[in-house]
Structure formats: structure tokens, C-alpha cells
Design a protein around this nucleic acid. Structure first.
Length: 887
DNA sequence: CTGTGTCCCCTTTTT
DNA sequence: GGGGACACAG
């Protein structure tokens, strides 16, 4: 950053750095020398005012920011950096809890749980949490991530379980009431386990200090000066912690922040802390850093334009700042015909910048979402732009890790599919149930896997993961489960909850363009910045809403201005640019038109913004066909199928008599459509897996009981008799959920649902002849050949709008092919859990599409195309073949 | 032009 | 599970 000579400060910086003791909030717009001023403050306190470095506490919310503070201070005086306490809020809180563990009611070294650990804590007990409107039979743990997020948010806002329950009751939201109950249980479980979660690292110190005046006094005496970076990112708990430590008058507080760069409200940051500064600290003063050293003047003017709106609304009266650099920046707004043209335009522009003397590494593309960033990376690479690859896929994408996981699965999942894919384990690898010991032996013992491994960092990371797992064994290993199995389940859990991150030290500073999310770019600056996809629905992005509505705020709390966050994000993106800024949008994405982003309206009258048009590229002769490798078959990575596998199955070889292919069951075709690869493992290789999902056993048993009821038998009795055969293991943590759900359904069966005047005929299997083969399908009930009924366990739709599934289309088609007059087939869908039956409408267009899908499946199976192309990749961690599968 | 059905797309991240 | 774009039908 600029700002004259190395040690000189401008007037506004000096005013901030040399201020008298007393609560001060420094407004620091982008590029105004925030960190320089903060470090100057530290040196001023130590050198000019004789403060001991040990009396300085410098806090911020991200490790990166804390690290930067430390480095900048260390660069000038390592001694101060060592002696002052410079850390994140969480690290400080952790330290405090360890020092005062007794007062906090904790064990000496409490376990620190991350998100996955917390999930595991609730997962086993999900049946006892009292979930009703949040009960999802297809996967009882489905709502847990959202519930945990809500609990985390509550902790960040210092809302205790009682308060949560009171607010939930007040607003009458059933789901939130259930969350309140879970919150209570969760806190009990943490206490029993002697554990805390991340949010506790800030929230619990607040309570600790509030409840222990002696301790509060000691801690206040320890810190004479509090320096807070990124004050706009501080959550409510953090702000209260600061207020407690700063004393009643807050005299020791010196904070720096910028309301315009608050982009973390979604994770609990409360920019309201900035607005409420004078309320929190009546003697508090504000000052502003006034000069932008980062960007060329015409860019600084442009940044100002984005602020006009907010100014007129008077939300915050931050003065605009002066530019100090010279030189004319390119400030471009390009409209591309489509996304292809946009990528082409960016690539071309980048080349031009390299001609002008910029390196690739000085150029960056900032995207709103990671998906957009990934697509942009791909598109630029396809146009021969060197792109620095961000960590893709995380740890699990690493082949070495894959190998080790398959080996673990082979050893610890005795009935898992890996058993059939590998030869027997060597002697030295059997007999241990210690994951770390197993891995160490496999890597460095006679088996010597380490010699064949290429990515040492990844292997080390897996070992560290295993180590950490063992420390949390008391929470993560349930019942009689072996450690090995529990570890593998934990890996799946981590994958499900957002991947297993793996950061290779990005020191590989090759000269390549970087593609980042805007969030990831915070605090950074680049000579040339591209901000693409400024279109409706792309930036701002529309996201999937949570299952839960936010907990209503109590009176006196300021509502966080959600809509403004995207504007601030836009502002952050623009202000990363030092020399040149290229904004762009496409008018069409995947053939669909997209309007300009509303964010662009504030630039409408901006002077000096050059408009460009990027035309569609001429239909390119097909580029390197790197997108999809041709259909792979067989061979899952290093795993070879066992000899007896693939002997029979619906895939290819399985033929009935007379050379006619036997009909494929509809559910097999559906399995193929969900993931051809999984179909391959399960039906072609016939790799068995012991664990069937309890949901399917539940469905089987209930269907059985309903059928019995249709035949006049007692459904409850039929269920009782059948449940031990098809239901989950009685020890399964979710067994009770399903048993109770089934009993609930069967006891609430109204007698007239079994009308004796309409005895269901024996349900016959129907067939559908399609171009590529024949499918067999069975309704749940057939009253006669043209009156069919299906059962579903889903929740009934709103307004009785039945969604027509592929299965429905198939049944209708089957009935017609069997002779029912066209359009006369009556199909009903029974919502078993609600005891409601609705007619399924006949929609010919949809039927055609569905049948085409099935046909495609038949074709794929016939041609043996078994690519790993899951319909929904989120399901992969739950797939029995997760560890075998190369995808 | 206006309503309706249908398809297609789907967050941000730290500790 | 909801919102926008778009393709129809009227």
C-alpha cells in the first residue's frame, strides 16, 4: 500500500494512530491504509506512550487478518509482535476458557467441536429430538445442518436456549419451536461431553466475564489497549466481549472498520455495531481515513458512484475519500452476447494487458459464487489463459487419499463393497482397530504404501485428520462400533457437510490468472480486476432458502439490512482494483436471456465508464473434447472387480429365454438414471453392501402392511410380523423413528380406506415396451386394469398439486399398452404418511419426456455406459460405493 | 398482451 | 422449494 514513505502517515492516518486514549472508531475505506494505521498505532503506544506490549490485545475475526496484523508489526519490530496478544476472537476466547476452565464450568482442556463433530453429536439422537414438522423420513438427519446453523447464529447473537424458545413461541413458528428444543438438548450434550463449539469460544467468555466480577476486573487490568480490526465483521457476542474488556468507559478501545465492506452478515456479523458505536460508547469518537492510495483517480470516482444511493437514503454518512495516485485507468462495462462471448472477451482483454506489460498473475476475476468461479476458470483455460487452479475437490479428490480410504474400507467395513475388490489384507494390517496405527503401518510398514504415494502433504493431512478423530473418539464413536468404521463414517459426514478441505500451500506462485469469489478477495488488491456476470440472478446471486426462517429479533435490535449486502459485495469487488477494472455481463446464459444486474443502475450516469460490446464468437469448430471422457466401463481406479462379479445382472448379459432381453425393473432404470456408475457397482458387478437404508425397509414393511389391509387382514399385525425381517437392525440409531412412523401410519388408517366393495385384485406386474427394451413396473394397488394406485411416503403437496413422477408415467403407459383405452387410465397417488389420496393428472408431454428418460437408461445399460454422473452429487457421501468410486 | 404451465437454475465462510 | 424466463394458448 502507498502513503508516501514507509513510515510517514497522512493527516487522517496520523489523527487516528496518535489519538488520545478513549473509545475511537476509525472509518477506513478500501485502500486507505488501514493496516498501516493500525500498526502505527501499536508502535505509537509502545514507543511514545511507554505502553508494555503485553498490555495490547489486537483482535479480528479471520485468521488471515490476524496473521497480516502480526506480520506487519513483526516486519518492523518482531519483539512487539511476540509480546502483544494478536489473534482472532476465537483464539483469544479459547485461551480465556482454558485459563479459567473451572470458573467456566469446563474440563481443563475442553474438546473443541467443529461443524461435523456437532452434527455427529446430534445425528445418533435425532430420533429423540422431538422433530415433527422437521421430521424427514427419507433422511432423518436432513434438517440437522440447518438446525445447527440456526443454533450457531443464536450463539453469535448471545441468545440462550430459553430466550430462543421464548421468541419461537412468541412468533408461533413450529419449526423454530422444534429448533429451540434441539438447542437445549445440544447444550446438554456439549456439557456432558465436556465440549464447546466454535461459537462458544466467543459466547462463553462473555458469560464468564459477566458472571465473575473478579475475573472481569483481572482481565480488564491486563489489557490497557484493545485494537479491533474489521469492526464491521464483529458479531454481537464479539461486540459485547469488546465492551466488557474495554471497561465501562471503553477508554482502551481503538477499532477500525468500514460499513461499506460489511459482507458477512449472513454468518452473524453485525454491522450495526458500527452504527451503534456512539450508543455503546457515549464518550466515543469517530475519525475517517481520507485518502485512497490504492486505485487510480477515475476508479475512485467510480467507487463513489456506487455509494450515491446509500447516501441519498442517508444510511451512513461516510465521506468519500480523495484519490492520491495518478494515471488513467481503463474502466469498462462490457455487454457480451452470451457467456461464451464474455469469456472470450475477458481472455482477449487479458492478453492485451499482458501486451501492455502486466503479468497474468496481476490479473484476477472476481465472481459472486464458487460455481461461477469454477465455470470461469474452465472457460479461460479453454481459451489458453493460464489459470491458477484453486483447490478443487479437496482432500478426497487426491488419488493417494482414495487409495488409503479404500484400504481402510477393506479393513474396517467387513461387509462393504471394498471387500470384494481387493485381495486379502496382509498379516500386519489385520488385527488393529486403531486408525492412526493402521495408516502408519500401511504407509511405513512392510506394505510400504508411502513409497507409492505422490502427494505427501495430502497423506499428512489425512493422518492429522485421523489423529483429531481419535481425540474426539468419545463423541464420534457410538455403541459397539469399531474405530475404523466410525472414522470412515466421519469422512462421509465431512464430505456431506461441505467437503474435506485441503489447502496445499499456495506458494506455487506461477504466473497465472486467479479466479476468486468476491468474499475470498476481501482485503486483497490487484492491478487488473475483472468482475463478470453482472446479470440478474448471477450477481446478486439467488440462493436456496434455509428450511428455517430466521429467529425474529427482539425489540431494540436493529434489523440487519439484508438487501444492501449485495451492494456492499459489489463495492468490495470494484475496490480491489488498482489500475484497471473491467465489468461485464452476458445477455444470454445457456440460451436464456438475463437482464442486467440491478447493481449496475448506480453506474448508469458514471462518467468515464467505457461501454463495450462483445459479440458472440462465430460458431467455433469443436474445441478440444476435454469435457467428457468417452464412456468408461469397469475398473474403479485401482480396484479390479472380483472374478465372480458381473456374472449376472440386468446389464447386458442378463437375458431371458429365447434371446429376448428380460424386462428391466423400473427401479433399476431409476437407479441408473440417478447414477450410472452406482448402477454398475450394484447391478453389474453386483458388489454387495450390507447396509440398506432403513428408509427402504420401512417402506417395504408399510407397503406390506397396507397390502395386507387391502386384503382384509390386520395391518398392524402384518407389520409386526414383517418388521424384524425388513426393518433396520434394532440397534440402529434411527430404528425407532421408522418403527414409530410406521405405527403412526397404521394406527391412523381410517377403516374406509379399505373398502370391501373394491377389493384390490392381485397386483400384477405390468410391462412397457420402449424402443431400447422393456421395463417392468408394479403399482401398489390395482383396482382393475385401468384403475391403479401408487403409494408415496412424501409429504403431500400444497394445494393438492400432484407432481407427476416418471413412475406414474410409466404405469399409465403400461396400462395403455396392456389394452386400456388411451386417456382412460385412472391413477391415484396415496400420501401414506398423511392418509390422503389424490388423482394423478395425465400430462402427455411430460409422459413422453419421462418415457424418453427410461429409454435413455435402457440404451445406456445396453451399451454399457456407466460413467460416474450422479444426478445429485450431494448424495455421493451416502452411496455405499463412495470410497471405491473415482468421481 | 396476459395468464398458465413448465423448465431450469440454484450463496457467501470463519472459527 | 421458489423465482425468472419462455413457450404456448387465448
Amino acid at each position: 500500500m502507498g502513503g508516501g514513505g514507509k513510515y510517514s502517515l497522512d493527516n487522517s492516518q496520523r489523527a487516528a494512530a496518535y489519538a488520545e486514549r478513549g473509545p475511537l472508531l476509525v472509518g477506513a475505506g478500501p485502500g486507505t491504509g488501514k493496516t498501516r494505521t493500525l500498526t502505527a498505532r501499536v508502535f505509537h503506544l509502545v514507543r511514545e506512550r511507554g505502553e508494555r506490549p503485553e498490555s495490547l490485545l489486537a483482535l479480528t475475526f479471520s485468521r488471515r487478518a490476524a496473521e497480516e496484523m502480526r506480520e506487519r508489526i513483526a516486519a518492523e519490530e518482531p519483539e512487539i509482535a511476540r509480546r502483544a496478544f494478536i489473534s482472532t476472537f476465537h483464539a483469544y476466547g479459547h485461551d480465556l476458557l482454558r485459563r479459567y476452565w473451572q470458573e467456566a464450568g469446563l474440563p481443563p482442556r475442553p474438546l473443541l467441536l467443529d461443524r461435523t463433530d456437532a452434527f455427529a453429536l446430534l445425528e445418533r439422537r435425532v430420533g429423540t429430538l422431538g422433530l415433527n414438522t422437521l421430521r424427514y423420513l427419507h433422511d432423518p438427519t436432513f434438517p440437522l445442518p440447518d438446525i445447527l446453523s440456526a443454533i450457531t447464529r443464536a450463539k453469535e447473537d448471545l441468545i440462550a436456549p430459553d430466550e430462543f424458545a421464548a421468541r419461537a413461541a412468541a412468533c408461533g413458528d413450529e419449526r423454530l419451536k422444534e429448533v429451540a428444543a434441539v438447542y437445549r438438548v445440544y447444550e446438554d450434550l456439549l456439557r456432558e461431553a465436556g465440549a464447546v463449539d466454535f461459537a462458544d469460544l466467543v459466547a462463553r467468555p462473555v458469560r464468564l466475564l459477566q458472571n465473575n466480577p473478579r475475573l472481569l476486573h483481572a482481565e480488564r487490568a491486563r489489557w490497557r489497549h484493545l485494537l479491533i480490526d474489521e469492526y464491521q465483521d464483529v458479531n454481537r457476542a464479539g461486540a459485547l466481549l469488546v465492551r466488557l474488556l474495554a471497561g465501562d468507559d471503553g477508554a482502551g478501545l481503538w477499532a477500525v472498520g468500514d460499513l461499506r465492506q460489511a459482507i458477512y452478515a449472513f454468518r452473524g456479523a453485525s454491522p450495526a455495531n458500527v452504527s451503534a458505536f456512539e450508543t455503546d460508547y457515549p464518550t466515543g469518537r469517530r475519525t475517517e481515513l481520507a485518502v485512497n492510495y490504492r486505485s487510480r483517480p477515475n476508479l475512485v470516482t467510480l467507487f463513489g458512484a456506487t455509494q450515491q444511493q446509500q447516501h441519498s437514503r442517508g444510511s451512513e454518512d461516510a465521506p468519500l475519500w480523495h484519490a492520491s495516485r495518478d494515471g488513467e485507468a481503463a474502466a469498462v462495462l462490457a455487454v457480451a452476447a452470451d457467456d461464451d462471448a464474455q469469456a472470450m472477451g475477458i481472455a482477449r482483454r487479458m492478453r492485451r494487458f499482458t501486451d501492455e506489460g502486466y503479468s497474468w498473475g496481476q490479473q484476477v476475476v472476481l465472481c459472486r459464487t464458487r460455481a461461477q468461479a469454477a465455470a470461469m476458470q474452465e472457460a479461460l483455460r479453454a481459451r489458453d489463459v493460464p489459470v491458477q487452479s484453486q483447490q478443487e475437490g479437496g482432500l478426497l479428490a487426491c488419488p493417494d487419499i482414495k487409495t488409503l480410504l479404500i484400504l481402510l474400507s477393506r479393513a474396517f467395513e467387513p461387509h462393504g463393497p471394498a471387500r470384494h475388490s481387493l485381495p486379502d489384507l496382509p498379516e500386519e494390517l489385520s488385527g488393529t482397530d486403531n486408525v492412526v496405527a493402521f495408516l502408519a503401518q500401511a504407509l511405513f510398514g512392510p506394505y510400504g504404501l508411502a513409497r507409492r504415494m505422490e502427494n505427501g502433504a495430502a497423506v499428512a493431512r489425512l493422518l492429522a485428520l485421523a489423529q483429531a478423530f481419535q481425540e474426539r473418539a468419545s463423541i464420534l464413536i457410538g455403541g459397539e462400533e469399531t474405530q475404523g468404521r466410525a472414522f470412515l463414517r466421519h469422512i462421509r459426514r465431512m464430505a456431506r457437510l461441505g467437503g474435506v478441505p485441503f489447502e496445499e500451500d499456495s506458494a506455487c506462485e506461477s504466473d497465472a490468472v486467479r479466479v476468486l469469489t468476491v468474499h475470498a478477495s476481501k482485503g486483497l488488491e490487484f492491478p487488473v480486476v475483472f468482475v463478470p456476470n453482472l446479470s440478474q440472478g448471477k450477481f446478486p446471486a439467488r440462493g436456496r432458502p434455509s428450511l428455517l426462517s430466521p429467529l425474529p429479533r427482539s425489540e431494540g435490535e436493529t434489523e440487519t439490512d439484508d438487501g444492501e449486502e449485495e451492494t456492499r459485495l459489489f463495492f468490495v469487488a470494484l475496490t480491489r482494483a488498482r489500475d484497471h477494472l473491467i465489468l461485464s455481463r452476458a445477455e444470454r446464459y445457456n440460451g436464456r436471456s438475463a437482464a442486467a444486474s440491478p447493481l449496475l443502475t448506480c453506474l448508469d450516469g458514471a462518467v468515464g465508464l467505457q461501454r463495450e460490446v462483445w459479440d458472440a464468437a462465430p460458431p467455433a469448430p469443436s474445441r478440444a473434447a476435454a469435457s467428457e471422457p468417452p464412456s468408461e466401463r469397469g475398473g474403479a481406479g485401482s480396484v479390479s472387480p472380483s472374478p465372480q462379479a458381473g456374472e449376472r445382472g440386468p446389464g447386458g448379459e442378463g437375458r431371458g429365454r429365447g434371446g429376448q432381453p428380460a424386462p428391466l425393473e423400473a427401479r433399476d432404470a431409476e437407479l441408473y438414471l440417478r447414477c450410472p456408475r452406482r448402477f454398475f457397482y450394484e447391478r453389474v458387478l453386483a458388489l454387495p453392501h450390507a447396509e440398506t437404508h432403513p428408509y427402504s425397509g420401512f417402506q417395504k414393511a408399510v407397503r406390506h402392511a397396507l397390502r395386507a389391509a387391502g386384503e382384509g387382514a390386520n395391518p398392524a399385525a402384518a407389520f409386526q410380523a414383517y418388521w424384524p425381517q425388513v426393518g433396520p437392525d434394532p440397534a440402529h440409531p434411527h430404528e425407532e423413528i421408522y418403527r414409530l412412523a410406521a405405527e403412526e401410519i397404521l394406527t391412523s388408517l381410517p377403516p374406509e380406506t379399505v373398502p370391501p366393495q373394491h377389493p384390490a385384485t392381485a397386483v400384477e406386474t405390468l410391462t412397457v415396451a420402449l424402443e431400447q427394451g422393456t421395463l417392468s413396473v408394479r403399482p401398489d394397488v390395482s383396482h382393475d386394469s385401468a384403475r391403479l394406485e401408487c403409494h408415496t411416503f412424501r409429504k403431500p403437496p400444497k394445494e393438492d398439486k400432484v407432481e407427476v413422477s416418471g413412475r406414474h408415467s410409466l404405469l399409465r403407459e403400461a396400462a395403455e399398452q396392456a389394452g386400456a383405452p388411451s386417456g382412460q387410465v385412472i391413477l391415484h397417488l396415496r400420501y401414506v404418511t398423511a392418509g390422503q389420496t389424490l388423482p394423478v393428472p395425465d400430462k402427455p408431454a411430460q409422459r413422453k419426456k419421462h418415457l424418453a428418460k427410461y429409454n435413455e437408461a435402457l440404451r445406456g445399460i445396453r451399451l454399457q455406459v456407466f460413467s460416474a454422473a450422479p444426478d445429485d452429487a450431494d448424495d455421493c457421501p451416502a452411496c455405499p460405493y463412495f470410497f471405491l468410486c473415482p468421481a
